[in-house]
């Protein structure tokens, strides 16, 4: 797998750092990491940048992760880019909502690097 460009969307800067570190610990080769602290910032980023993977929280101010996933459907740069939700809200209703909105996977916080590996790697082997 060649090095990838990742967009991490979370309103917590500490959590963005943890996700970044966990991706690297999981053995993912990262070319570049972009960060956004809500859906609006992520959408703006995606208008300008092409990434290989988007990891997003759900509960965020201004625009939440579920709305972001829906709005990304209309963004040319996001076409075919896997979106994985990383959130504390891991109830069945949230999982169904996220997957039906277009997310390709779901990771519950707290998570380990192994869980990241388990959920992310298959997305690049499909």
């Amino acid at each position: 797998m060649s090095p990838i460009r990742v967009l991490i969307v979370d309103d917590s800067s500490v959590m963005r750092k943890i996700v970044d570190r966990s991706l690297r610990q999981a053995g993912l080769e990262i070319k570049e990491v972009f960060e956004a602290c809500n859906g609006v910032e992520a959408l703006a980023r995606m208008q300008q940048t092409r990434v290989d993977l988007i990891l997003s929280d759900i509960n965020m101010p201004t625009m939440d992760g579920l709305e972001l996933v829906r709005q990304l459907q209309a963004v040319e740069n996001a076409k075919g880019v896997p979106i994985v939700m990383i959130t504390t809200e891991a109830g069945e209703a949230h999982v169904v909502q996220a997957l039906s909105s277009g997310a390709r996977g779901y990771i519950r916080k707290p998570f380990s690097a192994d869980q990241i590996k388990e959920r992310i790697f298959p997305l690049f082997q499909e």
Binding site: S12, N59, T88, A90, G91, K109
Partner: peptide
């Protein structure tokens, strides 16, 4: 803040058999 958020989320996940709906 994240610690509190995650402990609450992990607590919810531990009791899903008796609690269906709970928002944070």
């Amino acid at each position: 803040g994240e610690i509190c958020n995650m402990v609450a989320g992990a607590f919810k996940a531990q009791v899903t058999d008796i609690i269906d709906q709970c928002m944070l």
